[in-house]
Design a protein around this nucleic acid. Structure first.
Lengths: 221, 221
DNA sequence: GTCTATATAGAGATAGAC
DNA sequence: GTCTATCTCTATATAGAC
């Protein structure tokens, strides 16, 4: 299932890195990641990648069997970044509102960062051509984070700090209350942003407010 | 600004449709729309478009100056569909919860439909290459709808039916409370959907519930 | 493994007949 | 305007020297 993203299957050659210089692998991956995220898969040529990486095109093909495989490797790296960038978000022993605020800030910081948006842009654009890659990405990134949020809500339920009937739905709601209002303008690089700099705080605060009003234990329902 | 989407600027030739047969224009636009939405801009060739439209490639170029212009014309059509598909959503003289439920159903029906998702997919993918087109699309579709929602909330505020301090933010929140939970799985065509068929109703109901708890006039704060 | 130079295929766009 | 046949450029991928 996630074999398409297994690291050892992504580079070329017989043995494990038979003489390839890791620094060049890294440089190629960096260049590919930057260019793919910025301009999309189809619009980027292997020549550009080689040039930006400071190597020849033949070297690129010595490290990665094809453009497809290089793309897969780049997405694989993004999954690791996802896990590292967003996972340590929740701790239980804390005021709920403070914890939610911190989580929402993390969501804003990571999910709306240019790098993450670039990954999503290219995944959504090329998804139909790489279905197994999409599945791997979802299972490595967004789903574990939703699951962790749901578990956080369940723990808060047990403590009586929240009253969340459907933790999975609530996880999606919290994520999108923060992400949604800023999503289009960041994803599309709008010249006239819908929100100014300080409005980001309003979006975060609005998300926490609405979530608390919806799921605070003393709310009528 | 929106000149890139002006209908008269999108087809080829000197006079207004100097001898071109509208049915073929329509067929080409339909084929282009379908293919672009399904596979993206770069992955679709003018040959494929011509074949699917049942005309020759030269005919395509007789109707549309270039692939770029054909793409722009297709986005233009999508803007009209956006306005027609989502605009008559709100009426004032109605129970607020019922109106919100109806609006949310419309959001689910239109914004999460395969056709709309395809447009968003290709707009986000090719946005960097067509910045003025992105601007036109946003101004013709999402922004007016947000504005209409905000005005609906303001009217409800005046009637005392709601208490919405920031109508613009609330508009985004409502849209994404419905759209968000279903967005990734539909946008990426996940094989194992996160929600089953009946859960869509739960998402809609959950959005209305949360919105009402957040902005009902008798809410504490 | 890494480079320069090249093979080959495919796509956007056009020429010329009707 | 519409078709068939073609031009031309670019991109993926490879051959061969070091």
């Amino acid at each position: 299932m996630s074999s398409a993203l297994a690291p050892e299957a992504l580079t070329t050659g017989p043995g494990p890195s038979a003489g390839r210089r890791p620094e060049k692998t890294e440089a190629i991956l960096d260049a590919a990641g930057h260019l793919f995220r910025e301009h999309g898969y189809g619009a980027v040529s292997m020549d550009q990648i080689a040039r930006e990486a400071g190597v020849s095109k033949a070297t690129v093909y010595a490290h990665f069997e094809s453009k497809d495989r290089l793309f897969a490797a780049m997405i694989h790296g993004a999954c690791r970044a996802y896990a590292e960038g967003l996972m340590p978000a929740a701790t239980e022993m804390e005021d709920v509102r403070a914890a939610l605020t911190r989580i929402c800030r993390e969501i804003e910081r990571f999910l709306l960062a240019p790098k993450t948006l670039g990954i999503y842009r290219v995944i959504m654009a090329e998804g139909p051509r790489f279905p197994e890659l999409v599945q791997s990405f979802i299972e490595a990134g967004p789903l574990p984070f939703r699951k962790m949020l749901a578990e956080f809500f369940e723990a808060a339920n047990r403590r009586g700090a929240l009253k969340v009937p459907n933790p999975q739905l609530a996880a999606h709601q919290l994520v999108w209350l923060v992400r949604g209002p800023l999503y289009l303008e960041r994803m599309l690089n709008l010249k006239q942003p819908l929100w100014d700099e300080q409005s980001v705080d309003e979006v975060v605060a609005g998300a926490v407010d609405m979530f608390m009003k919806g799921y605070a234990p003393d709310a009528r329902d």
